[in-house]
Structures are given as structure tokens and as C-alpha cells.
């Protein structure tokens, strides 16, 4: 590696870090949190005994999982203006990723809720709890344990999927690396730096995941 390349890498560390902290991470966190809220709603709809409600949820999940994320992003950013709905790049990405997480995480949350034994619902109702209290105080706290590993997968995938937002003008990590590399043709060096940044973010998340799992195991025999 010559001095010029080394210098280019050193010069790119700051801007790439800034893109990670100001765009990639916020985009991930906002989309994930909103996506989880959406997913809980969709999961409860899926579990509803009202056929119309559960069918709507089923169709939503099927659409999200059955179409490419890149296409969902394009439809929201390039397609919706035809219907008069116009988003800036960052909000467009948030909407797309939220809808995407909502679909995938809904299935995770649904199966985690189903993994809680029926006896827990019965016991809660015999001490007087209604549906909402049982869900909040008895079922979801136990479902979280089952849901953490698959939801962590969803989150880690999302970190990397945010790179797709580079295609709709969001200046996130990959796009900044592209812009720095284009005039110099130092693609290997700059994409390498970007890869390391993604990897570090995911390492941190994996660490957080294992801490959360340990915490959740406090009430089960090991």
C-alpha cells in the first residue's frame, strides 16, 4: 500500500465515522423502534379471532416478505410521488425500513407470544387480569425471552440493509464511501473502511444481545 492510499484511508476515517453516527445508526434505531411497535400491532392482529383482522395482517406480512427491500425503497421514494406523496430521502428510508421490520418482526413476536403456555393466560385470568393486563404483565415479559435472538438478527440485518438507502440519496456510510472513492478509484481501501465500520456496529449489537439474554435468564433454571 503506498503513502497516497494510506493518507486517503486516514482522511476518510472521520467522514465515514460521521456518516455512521449521524445517519446509519439513527436510521437503524428509529426504523427498528417504530418497526417493533408496528410489528406488535400486526402480531396481535394476526392472533385475532376476527377473520378480517387476521387476514389483513397476513396480507401485510406476505407483501413485505414477498418483495425485495430495494424495490420497497424505490416505490416509496420514486413511486409514491406519482400519487402526490413526496418524502425527503431520510424519511423515505425510515418509512421503508419501518414497514419492512414491521413485517418480519411481526412473525417473530407472534410466535414468541404463542410460545408462552396457555396456562399462563388461564392463571392470569383466574386472578382477575383482562387481555391487556395479561399481555403486558404476564405474556410479553415471557415472550421477550424467546424473541430476543431472532429480533437481534432482524436488527443486525437492518444495520446492513440501511446501505440500500444509498440508492435514494441518503448520505449514509456506504454512500459517503462511494463518494470518497469515485474520484480516486481507491474502491478497495474505502469500501474496506466502510465494511469495518458496519462490522464494528454489528459486533457491539451482538454484545448487547448476549447481555440481554443473560438478563432474561435470571428467572429460569440453568
Amino acid at each position: 500500500m503506498n503513502d497516497q492510499t494510506t493518507q486517503l484511508i486516514l482522511d476518510s476515517l472521520g467522514p465515514l465515522l460521521r456518516a455512521t453516527v449521524t445517519t446509519t445508526i439513527p436510521l437503524t434505531i428509529i426504523s427498528f423502534v417504530l418497526g417493533l411497535v408496528l410489528a406488535l400491532g400486526v402480531a396481535l392482529m394476526r392472533l385475532s379471532s376476527v377473520p378480517v383482522v387476521s387476514s389483513l395482517a397476513r396480507i401485510y406480512v406476505s407483501l413485505v416478505r414477498g418483495t425485495p427491500l430495494l424495490l420497497q425503497l424505490f416505490i416509496i421514494y420514486y413511486g409514491l410521488p406519482a400519487l402526490g406523496v413526496r418524502f425527503d430521502p431520510f424519511p423515505a428510508a425510515v418509512v421503508a425500513f419501518t414497514l419492512n421490520v414491521g413485517g418480519y418482526a411481526a412473525e417473530v413476536i407472534r410466535s414468541a407470544i404463542l410460545s408462552v403456555p396457555k396456562g399462563q393466560w388461564e392463571a392470569a385470568s383466574t386472578v382477575g387480569m383482562g387481555y391487556v393486563t395479561t399481555l403486558r404483565r404476564v405474556v410479553l415479559p415471557q415472550a421477550v425471552r424467546t424473541a430476543i435472538p431472532p429480533l437481534s438478527n432482524t436488527l443486525i440485518s437492518l444495520v446492513k440493509d440501511t446501505s440500500l438507502a444509498s440508492t435514494i440519496q441518503v448520505t449514509e456510510l456506504l454512500r459517503v464511501a462511494q463518494e470518497a472513492a469515485a474520484p480516486t478509484y481507491e474502491f478497495f481501501a474505502l469500501y474496506g473502511v466502510a465494511a469495518v465500520y458496519y462490522w464494528v456496529v454489528c459486533l457491539v449489537l451482538s454484545f448487547v444481545q448476549s447481555r440481554l439474554e443473560e438478563r432474561q435468564n435470571r428467572y429460569v433454571a440453568t
Binding site: P117, G119, Q120, E122, A123, T126, V138, Q142, Y219
Partner: peptide, 12 residues
């Protein structure tokens, strides 16, 4: 008040 065969205590 109900007591179940397999107790169904809230484990968490």
C-alpha cells in the same frame, strides 16, 4: 380462587 395441577405460577 383456582389452584392448577401444574401450578402455572408466573415464572418471571
Amino acid at each position: 380462587g383456582m389452584v392448577f395441577q401444574s401450578h402455572h405460577l408466573f415464572p418471571h
